[in-house]
Design a binder for these strands. Structure first.
Lengths: 198, 198
DNA sequence: CAAGATTTGTATCGACCGCTATACAATGAG
DNA sequence: CTCATTGTATAGCGGTCGATACAAATCTTG
């Protein structure tokens, strides 16, 4: 076993990626500058480009890391709960706590990081949209499961209900950016669950 | 009666403002450049600065115009409907049609135009937030009216319900940016109204 | 030790940003 | 007509953008 030749990297790549992730999370993709990134990461531009390629590549890695860490609660809740209703309620309750956590920027990176952008960032918007439509699709599949199991009426508007909860989560994200607390978001979740079919 | 001295303006100020409004609506404040604005407005930078001051002033005028035109349905619905439930339902139904109207950019300018921004645009974010909290406040007042009139339970969580509908509207705005149609947004509105207290 | 590979900091590149100085064109007042 | 006033067009200001050329520094290997 031998280490790679050449001068070793002087910074922690994962720690630097987490710093970059939070910059993108707080300011969004385009409004985050290389200068802001390097300042937050504690490195100089050549180190950033050597380790992550370019700004676009760094952002994609940040998204990947977000999905694996801060945003993983959604996938877990949808996979672990026994019913669609319980799965969606858990997503909403955990989103309430997570989005308003003062330990990191408010809201959800996937929802908020690429809202305002110029013409050259449309592929990045599309990259995040893939995750959003996948989440909505997962909602629909769990709701459909409740229909198939006879837990909710057979004539339930599954797609409409999934869109409603996708919109609820996105609205909670925006509310947290306007200063809503975890308690306020939890009460939003409570009202949203009243829409779930009996 | 005499006209103002000097060379008359060669473009329609209102028409140019509407063009600028749509640029800000589609790309957001920071991602909209002076070059993009002047191209859309059909004028050159000196004409823009002479007529509107600077980019910030032009944006504020665009917001004012938006509130008076595309976004006026919210104020109207909240003022004209007899009950809080009817007022909020009308806001949601009209938002569904408006946000997905292919005749202009999707969603709501007030909600979407300043999401991603650098440190120097925080006052503009605050300017829009004022409008958002005012709308949420108006929701709460109409709901409180239903409580006072005995139409809904006295122990209703008025603030929580107002936050829920504010989040719903904001979620509908984001959904429209992801391609949701007016029909899909109307079904979101239908589910959201199931949360309204009996 | 020397040679080769890789990272580092410095110092910048060309492009675009918001904005404007300046010259010229088009109007009303005299 | 002349002159003052205002709008328009060209061109370019200083600054920041994302991205890099370069050479010194630091590692493995022989």
């Amino acid at each position: 076993m031998s280490r790679t030749p050449g001068r070793p990297r002087a910074f922690d790549r994962d720690a630097a990626l987490e710093k970059a992730l939070r910059e993108f999370w707080r300011h969004g993709y385009e409004a985050t500058s290389i200068a802001g990134l390097t300042a937050a990461m504690g490195i100089r531009p050549p180190s950033l480009y050597a380790a992550f390629g370019d700004k676009r590549g760094l952002f994609s890695e940040a998204v990947e890391r977000y999905q694996r860490t801060h945003g993983a609660f959604t996938t877990r809740a949808l996979a672990e709960e026994p019913t669609g209703r319980q799965a969606i309620e858990r997503v909403l309750r955990e989103a309430a706590v997570n989005y308003a956590d003062p330990g990191h920027p408010p809201g959800c990176l996937i929802i908020t990081a690429v809202v305002n952008h110029g013409p050259e960032a449309e592929d990045i918007e599309a990259e995040l949209r893939v995750h959003r439509v996948a989440a909505k699709r997962a909602f629909a599949e769990r709701i459909e499961g409740d229909v198939q199991a006879g837990r909710i009426p057979a004539d339930t508007d599954v797609e409409g209900l999934a869109t409603f909860y996708a919109a609820t989560v996105q609205g909670m994200s925006r509310q947290s950016q306007d200063g809503a607390t975890a308690d306020e978001l939890d009460r939003v979740a409570t009202f949203a669950m009243r829409a779930y079919p009996a």
